[in-house]
Design a protein around this nucleic acid. Structure first.
Length: 800
RNA sequence: GCCCGAGUGGCGGAAUUGGUAGACGCACAGGACUUAAAAUCCUGCGAGAUUUAACCCUCGUACCGGUUCAAGUCCGGUCUCGGGCACCA
């Protein structure tokens, strides 16, 4: 048929030369519409067929919206900082900067060859100094508003590699590189006060149109829990020992307490605690474990009792023993719990192991008994006896407040954001440490703080970033007193640059601000953001937090800058497994473009299945899509010289316009393609078609197969589709005077009848009952009633 | 353990508010064209029973039960698979 390579190149050049997809900020003649797809990490392996799926989906949307008269912003850039580039650099002794440059070239070439309608004038990489200058600038705003601070935090540490590991690299509790057991090491790190935004990040979801499952993902990650704090007292010193609980109503069932091994009160009471040696030993033991081991479920409970101190249940004065155990975490709640072994699985296990009393306080709810239920009325609980859970909690809260023993408390699982990485390939954190003045922010006018060139990319023996070795760079002067000072050598996490890139796309060349308020007000927000399921929790949460902070300090116009978020399913290998090199089931989009053409690949990826679900690759299905495109090409030979549309085709044409437009609104790409196949089949069945008929099909197909449709459209002498408009359904053509409807007897299909719009219920009934097969099934039986649903169905209900 | 999502032909999947289950595509089978093949075109294609044949009939959307004139769709329960979080008090 056609030489795909030639026509694809031809149209790609046309779009580029004409700047067809350039989005002009501030164009008042059109409604703005911002379509975004997650910018990729430009890896060495090139574009994945999974990328092609979401980029095509958003490309289809962008092309349709443009034809519908919107001013569409569909940008692309590169999320190029991060560990893989650094690893690659260490291995091959290539500067990450150079590797990234190479990879971007590959990615961009691949995207070009697929005909995506990105506005390339807005392209940037997070590694561009012009970009990360503003990432650093925004960090300074966090700092200046008290939202960034330094704190000692445990990190995963490989004692063999002497290196800090991410949770991913420490998966399973061992170092990914050398297999050594990972331990916890305390490091001072920059933190962002994300926990302050926990509630706002939940309520903000109301100002978004995210898919429900995405919203739920966010809410679960934030992990809000409503409960109470209860104060216990160390008799000997009067020190308060406060616990957090969601079930303060079970307070009468408390027989012991458990503190996190790191709980600060332990040191404070060390003079009183008679078995301090044993306690210290346990704390060392807990510390030697990786985060993975520590949080591993279903393992034996361990712990040590604090001897020599007396703590009493504040309600009834009964003695409560105090333990430390690693199943209590220091960074959630107060780092201390009250244990109710009768009704909590973990407490029960612990009590069994240490022979502690178990007092049931909920009838029928005792875990130690064979059959137990979760909700019963309270027993052994004085003033709560006989009450249900909700009432008991309320009453207990009132009591605690009155006696000043506790208070309602909401907790969140969401923690502050650890913002430091001991890596080279990231944005340098623009902070300076001066012996005299402490931590000082760099002067804004001195930004960007450029990443220096280094010879070695490996982390240092102490786990510091390789930047620490570059004394020229590290040694500087204090912005406050002018004395000698040292730079922070940690860099920012990969999540930083991707937390605000969508704002930069609105105004990418601005050298005065990260983006002007005018530009952001014009584009308003991202109307439609697409990405993988794996990013719907963390990336989206970080980005929303970042934006909410910028909003609160008056730097962006809206509290939420992303309106709709949709997550696409994965493209699996033809073996139904996740694609991976080791399984040998990967595919290279270049080869497919080369063999089948870009349009075929695009059509197939949209047709392959439900967009939000994972779908296995099928070469046969891909071939089917190629056949479809060839069929559309062959229709060219059927074009006649008649004017306007062919009368007989008008119904199906308008039906197709209607269905297809609707399908695209709801991201139902597979049915969009199938309707076009039906239309093409109808054209194929017709004797001949007019140019207008043909152009309609080509226009509807253009968003997904832009090259071949433009070529064919040019052949019949029309101006380019991308400069035209999207067809609108003419409802008057769809007004039918007759339809076929089904007739059921007792809900079973027994025939169809043709009715006219003018037929009243009586006439329809009559037609239904005179239908041969219906007669057969009604014969000799009593007709109870006949249900007529206009234009839909008739159901005859019979008895006997 | 908790939270989400999904179970429909040989396969990917349609069925938007309950109203003719299986659109569209793939695979497969038969036929036409051809010296032949490819391509293309035509026909069939959930299971089963019956029939010369057609119609027709029975069953059928993971399983059990319910609501309804009518259930893939709604309700209650169960199972399986996929994903996320995970000793969160």
């Amino acid at each position: 048929m056609y030489n795909y390579k030639e026509i694809e190149k031809k149209w790609q050049k046309y779009w580029l030369d004409k700047k067809t997809f350039k989005a002009v900020t501030g164009d008042k003649s059109k409604e703005p519409y911002y379509i975004l797809v997650e910018f990729p990490y430009p890896s060495g392996t090139g574009l994945h067929v999974g990328h092609v799926r979401s980029y095509t989906a958003q490309d289809v949307l962008a092309r349709v919206k443009r034809m519908q008269g919107y001013n569409v912003l569909y940008p692309m850039g590169w999320d190029a900082f991060g560990a893989p580039a650094e690893q690659y650099a260490i291995k091959n002794h290539i500067h990450p900067k150079d590797a990234v440059k190479e990879n971007i070239k590959t990615f961009k070439g691949q995207m070009m060859s697929l005909g995506f309608s990105f506005d390339w004038d807005r392209e940037f990489a997070t590694t561009d100094p012009d970009y990360y200058k503003w990432t650093q600038w925004q960090f300074l705003q966090f700092y200046k508003h008290g939202m960034a601070y330094k704190a000692k935090k445990d990190v995963n540490w490989c004692p063999n590699c002497k290196s800090v590991l991410s949770n991913e690299d420490a998966a399973g509790g061992v170092c990914e590189r050398c297999g050594t057991k990972v331990v916890q090491k305390e490091k001072s790190q920059w933190m962002l006060k994300m926990s302050d935004y926990a509630e706002d990040l939940i309520t903000g979801l109301n100002d978004t149109n995210f898919a429900e499952r995405v919203k739920l993902g966010q809410i679960n990650w934030i992990g809000k829990s409503v409960g109470a704090e209860v104060d216990f007292t160390v008799e000997e010193t009067g020190d308060k020992l406060t616990v957090y609980t969601t079930r303060c109503d079970t307070l009468f069932g408390v027989t012991f307490m458990v503190l996190a091994p790191e709980h600060p009160i332990i040191e404070k009471l060390s003079n009183l605690i008679t078995n301090m040696d044993e306690v210290r030993k346990y704390r060392e033991f807990a510390k030697s474990k990786s985060a993975f081991e520590r949080t591993e479920v279903n393992k034996d409970k361990t712990g040590v009792k604090l001897e020599g101190i007396t703590v009493k249940n504040p309600l009834n004065g009964k003695n409560v023993s105090v333990f430390i155990s690693d199943y209590v975490m220091m960074d959630y709640g107060t780092g201390a719990i009250m244990a109710v072994p009768a009704h909590d699985e973990r407490d029960y296990e612990f009590a069994k192991k240490f022979n502690i009393d178990i007092i049931p306080v909920i009838e029928g709810g005792d875990i130690s008994k064979e059959a137990y239920t979760k909700d019963g009325v309270h027993i052994n609980s004085e003033f709560l006896n006989g009450l249900g859970k909700e009432d008991a909690i309320k009453k207990m809260l009132d009591y605690l407040k009155e006696k000043n023993l506790g208070r309602p408390k909401v907790n969140y699982r969401l923690q502050d954001w650890i913002f430091s990485r001991q890596r080279f390939w990231g944005e340098p954190i623009p902070m300076i440490y001066c012996e005299k003045c402490g931590w000082q922010p760099m002067k804004e006018e001195d930004l960007p703080l450029l990443l220096p060139d280094v010879a070695e990319y490996e982390p240092t023996d102490t786990g510091e970033s390789p930047l620490a070795k570059i004394t020229d760079w590290v040694n500087t002067t204090c912005p406050c007193c002018g004395g000698p000072a040292k730079r922070e050598t940690d860099t920012m996490p990969n999540w930083a640059g991707s937390s605000w890139y969508f704002l930069r796309f609105m105004d990418p060349h601005n050298d005065k601000e990260f983006a002007s308020m005018d530009a952001m007000k014009y584009w308003k927000r991202v109307d439609w953001y697409n990405g993988g399921m794996e990013h719907t929790a963390r990336h989206l949460l970080y980005a929303r937090f970042w934006v909410q902070f910028l909003y609160n300090v008056g730097l962006v116009p809206n509290k939420e800058m992303i309106w709709t978020r949709v997550s696409h399913g994965m493209v699996l290998g033809s073996d139904n497994q996740k694609m991976s090199k080791s399984k040998g089931n990967t595919l290279n989009p270049d080869e497919i473009v080369n063999e089948y053409g870009a349009d075929t690949l695009r059509v197939y990826e949209m047709f392959m299945g439900d967009y939000s679900q994972d779908v296995p690759w099928s070469v046969n299905s891909l071939k089917g899509c190629k056949r479809f495109i060839e069929k559309v090409e062959r229709l060219l030979a059927k074009v006649n010289e008649n004017e306007g549309f062919t009368k007989d085709l008008e119904i199906i044409q308008n039906k197709t316009i209607k269905s297809v437009t609707n399908d695209l609104e709801r991201m139902s790409y597979n049915t969009y393609i199938s309707y076009l196949m039906i239309l093409a089949n109808a054209y194929d069945d017709a004797k001949s078609i007019t140019k207008e008929d043909y152009r309609l099909l080509l226009t509807l197909l253009n968003p997904v197969a832009p090259h071949i449709t433009e070529e064919l459209n040019e052949k019949i002498g029309f101006k380019p589709i991308c400069e035209g408009s999207w067809p609108v359904c003419d409802e008057s053509k769809l007004v039918q005077t007759e339809f076929d409807i089904a007739v059921q007897v007792n809900g079973k299909l027994r025939g169809t009848i043709t009715i006219s719009v003018d037929d009243n219920e009586e006439v329809i009934k009559e037609k239904a009952l005179s239908c041969e097969n219906v007669k057969k099934h009604v014969e000799g039986k009593e007709i109870v009633k006949v249900i007529v649903i206009k234009n839909k169905i008739v159901n005859v209900v019979v008895k006997g």
